[in-house]
Design a binder for these strands. Structure first.
Lengths: 335, 335
DNA sequence: CGCCTGGCCGTGAACGTTAACGTGATGGTT
DNA sequence: AACCATCACGTTAACGTTCACGGCCAGGCG
């Protein structure tokens, strides 16, 4: 990209490097890609002239041959949801360490947008996809997996061949419920998020809580949590503790409780999920289930890397890695 | 991408479409790109067969000719900083509406990483860059701008030819200081973030506050805010109100104040900047300066679009757009 | 009737890289 | 001495698209 004639940029190509170093294109290619078949001496020489000419290979030309663009896709529902930024940061860092960059797609948990995002990532020649798919059917996931390396996040894999990484929602939820029991609460309710297909948290809740404990569903947002809490308390006034799908809904529940004149945690305890950055500074400080979101992001890339490699050498369609990240309870004042 | 022979994916090319539609490559190209020189009838026919064959043009082959990849770069210091996600969402949405996707780079406000990110975006053949550059020198920014369309965010443009979009930090800061004065505070202090090169907030503070009002600098984070508040109050115990660079530092300050046994806002008021999602649910609810972060993101893409278009038809190096987004004060309990 | 104009469409060529194969030299083995 | 690997490197041919042409046909004009 250096070199300029009368204001007009002129691209430095592999041939320029080859000419300057007195070798052939192919040798230059070998020198950068470290494929062997080249002596250490000439490799050093070529690398030096690459440096000198400030040569940068064209991703387009390279991608045309290799079908690899050095980028990977991250599909999630909404980056503005405070759960995702930390995950994304983990993904970015791990990807950068691997030498790839990341394109992000927001889907708002809408099935059409999820598949559109997957298609777009595919067309752009990404090396793989990391997806928080909340609405897409299992068969569509399998279809994506057929087309390019895929890791599904926070969701059960549609088939053993598809890799997955999830927070351990089951034990996280169980810890929350057991904690509330230990605090003497007998009538629990859950505010479930109306997203996803697994409903691990809801099932774990109904398993651990007393039979018939009410569950109300709503959007996994502040207002969704407030509305769900309103409804649940209207229908079940005796409930003394709420377990929320995530911290956002928990905060919404706190708002709703206070508007009804109920104190938190004295009149009704609230426990969230995610342990957002500011959870400790809320009023009241939020008791919540913690999982390492950054680590989740890093792990996702790591697993994706395995999948990419596995597909490259002999597309072993056997069984892919499935990781579960630990969840711990952080007790603060809200519950 | 449809079509499969014995499990081996086979790409549908423009030639396949041409053959199926009974026209030439070039006609197919014209049909998709809407460049004219084609009759409405054949265009419809070609578009239909494109649909039928599920043909997707290769970004690599196209990019090779056009040097455009249909992606744009978003460079910021840390997506995990709760200020950025909303901005990013605005960028994603506006970019998606434009048909491009976005690659994100985190720099941690490190000059080397900022320029590396810019280089990477350039090499990947992006159509343009949106950058929150906190450390890079003006001349480096100009260099980036020479190479590809650029919009700088929340920073003064290095030269009139470079477009910029910023929050109106000057009035935002002024509003905060005036509010504290109106509340009777006479001894103010500022916790400034040790990032960026403009220091608009700091200058606006020293302009509006009483002469000699103390300013302490630290990382724009929770712990940075706590440390800065500790230092400021140790050196200036008479201060009764703190204005923080952002909400994160403000929350850190609240923590520090309480550890020193000082109540907020009774003993010391705290005002933040950004109006993060959970600012109203903090303890105490945070008085802060609001700017529409989503709108900032949208505007950045809009302006970038103008720059791209301007460069395409006659590289008018004259003067680029410079937008300032309004800032308003949101009064809550903390100050 | 011949010419030109403009609309529609097709034909090479080129973009920059890597995969596949080819080649010459070297050195060791029979 | 003839042979054959092996190494280091070069040549050719793609990858799929758009650009710059060039051709053809219909219709308008002198």
């Amino acid at each position: 990209m250096v070199g300029e004639i009368l204001g007009r940029e002129v691209r430095v190509t592999i041939d320029d490097v080859a000419r300057a170093a007195g070798v052939s294109r192919q040798t230059v290619s070998r020198a950068m890609n470290g494929k062997g078949e080249i002596s250490a001496a000439t490799r050093r020489r070529v690398l030096a002239t690459i440096e000198e000419l400030d040569y940068r290979p064209s991703v387009f030309a390279r991608g045309m041959r290799t079908q690899r663009g050095g980028t990977l896709g991250l599909i999630l529902s909404d980056i503005a949801n405070p759960f995702f930024p930390a995950v994304a940061r983990g993904v970015f860092d791990a990807a950068a360490a691997r030498g790839s960059s990341v394109v992000v797609h927001n889907t708002d948990a809408h099935a059409g947008r999820e598949s559109a995002a997957a298609r777009d990532v595919l067309e752009r020649g990404a090396d793989g996809v990391i997806g928080f798919f909340e609405a897409l059917a299992d068969e569509d996931l399998t279809e994506v997996h057929r087309r390019l390396p895929l890791v599904v996040a926070d969701r059960r894999a549609p088939e053993p061949g598809v890799a997955s990484v999830s927070s351990d929602f089951a034990t996280g939820t169980r810890l929350a419920v057991e904690h509330l029991h230990a605090r003497g609460h007998r009538r629990l309710g859950m505010l479930d998020g109306a997203v996803g297909v697994d409903h691990v948290r809801r099932h774990a809740f109904t398993d651990a809580a007393a039979p018939g404990s009410p569950v109300v569903t709503g959007p996994p947002t502040l207002t969704g949590g407030a509305a769900a809490a309103d409804q649940l308390l209207a229908e079940h006034p005796a409930v003394t503790a709420l377990f929320a799908f995530n911290d956002l809904m928990a905060v919404g529940a706190v708002r709703a409780l206070r508007e009804r004149g109920r104190r938190v945690p004295e009149d009704c305890a609230v426990v969230g999920y995610d342990d957002l950055t500011l959870a400790a500074d809320l009023d009241p400080p939020l008791t919540t289930v913690h999982t390492d979101k950054y680590e989740l992001g890093r792990t996702l890339v790591e697993v994706l890397d395995d999948v990419v490699r596995a597909r490259r050498d002999g597309s072993a369609p056997g069984v892919a890695p499935h990781r579960l990240l630990p969840a711990t309870l952080v007790v603060r004042r809200s519950g």
